[in-house]
Design a protein around this nucleic acid. Structure first.
Lengths: 233, 233
DNA sequence: TTTTTGCATATTGTTTACAATCTACAAACA
DNA sequence: TGTTTGTAGATTGTAAACAATATGCAAAAA
């Protein structure tokens, strides 16, 4: 069959057959820019401007706004416009409470369902964290941390949990992004916790994994709050 | 001041000052009809028809569809249309796992933050459950059950948790609605669990409340699955 | 008869135009 | 000087027109 009439991969003669509609395109692009802090929290999103920037009309942009509003990334005010959502300190605290519960379940399930290759990936991420930490690259650590926890969430083998987790984390990122520099000093401690988590999961101890992941999230919350309110000494 | 120039409540001379846009109106109405099973799972939602039924144009309807899609109530297929989401048995199982974790947190927090008036309300709901159960009104019990758990979720005093909880439960309802008749026989048992939950919360025992709520949700899952697979004997 | 092809129709995707509302600033008034 | 009111411009809300795609059915081919 290696010599059968092979169709040349014709370079999309007519059209690349757009897989995504302009709406999902706009939604993904806006989501990326918001999560990455390219568009900072509080920014007003002007329909016409964004439509022009993306090269589409206002319709698809409006639809993307609605989806992002439901996802909690923007706030939609009638006749006023849409704004990138701002997360207050107390709201962030609420997010951490919920995230701790979800991560607890992730730990419990991942300890029972994770595959060997995934454990290796987790260890690899931790190794990179060590490598990067000495050169004060808080930004790189942030990305690795997201990767670590998302991989763990996928290893729990529960699509609903994964969606809920990502939803909460996305919104929490609106808050954490602004405070990333504050947490640089806590990187070594946080990395130690990551190692202990993988140990528990690899051992298949679901109760311990649940406990350690919950504690890790709540400790992260405490560290962040202390970093933000240093006057409280 | 009781005699000051009192403006007659003029019957909205110009316009009632619409608080909600047509989009949120459409969204709320569709959400209500989907959750209540007025529009059953799997149904294809035709833009033009729904726009005509609601007396608006297609634009607002499309925006509402995007929001509902993000909320997980409908599935959007490019160039094919939107369909009321169908939840499979395995998906439902995943929902229950997540819901159990969220309810656990709800129990823990509610035990620490609930107010006396709310406890009285919970007891009142349970009383109504007893009254209705003897006349096989599974439908009424279903509504009371939703009310009970939603009140509990509000008593946890965490808006993020409340939103996540409602999101999960709404999608789970797509599944539970179809199976409501099956669970009639379990009403007495489930009501007993409700009483034990309120007892733990009233006592302020957050660990016990967490444990009982988690167990209650997982027991509900088991009961539902057994009711649906009676051949597995 | 069964399959395939082509066309008419219906439905969705997108754009454009228009209406309603808000915002900002300036003029009029106290 | 400070407040109110009116108007112009900008922005959002909605509707309607147009384009692209999918669907169903009938006719043609096997």
């Amino acid at each position: 069959m290696h010599n059968a009439l092979k169709k040349k991969p014709v370079a999309h003669a007519i059209e690349p057959l757009r897989q995504h509609s302009l709406v999902t395109l706009a939604q993904n692009e806006l989501e990326r820019r918001i999560i990455s802090d390219e568009i900072p929290a509080g920014t007003k999103l002007n329909e016409a401007d964004i439509a022009a920037a993306l090269g589409v009309s206002r319709g698809p942009v409006r639809e993307a706004f609605r989806a992002l509003g439901q996802a909690g990334l923007v706030r939609v005010e009638k006749n006023r416009g849409v704004f990138v959502r701002e997360v207050s300190l107390t709201e962030a605290s609420e997010f951490y409470e919920v995230r701790a519960a979800l991560e607890g379940l992730i730990g419990k399930l991942a300890a029972q369902r994770i595959q060997a290759a995934e454990i290796a990936q987790l260890r690899s991420i931790i190794k990179k964290m060590h490598a990067g930490s000495r050169s004060r690259k808080a930004d790189a650590y942030f990305a690795l941390n997201v990767e670590f926890h998302d991989l763990l969430a996928r290893a729990a083998r529960n699509e609903v949990l994964l969606a809920s987790y990502r939803n909460v984390v996305n919104q929490l990122d609106l808050y954490r992004r602004a405070t990333i520099s504050h947490s640089a000093s806590n990187i070594p401690l946080s990395t130690k916790e990551h190692e202990a988590i993988v140990d528990a999961i690899e051992a298949g101890d679901h109760a311990l994994a649940e406990k350690r992941l919950t504690a890790h999230v709540l400790a992260s919350r405490t560290r962040l709050q202390e970093a933000l309110a240093p006057a409280k000494k």
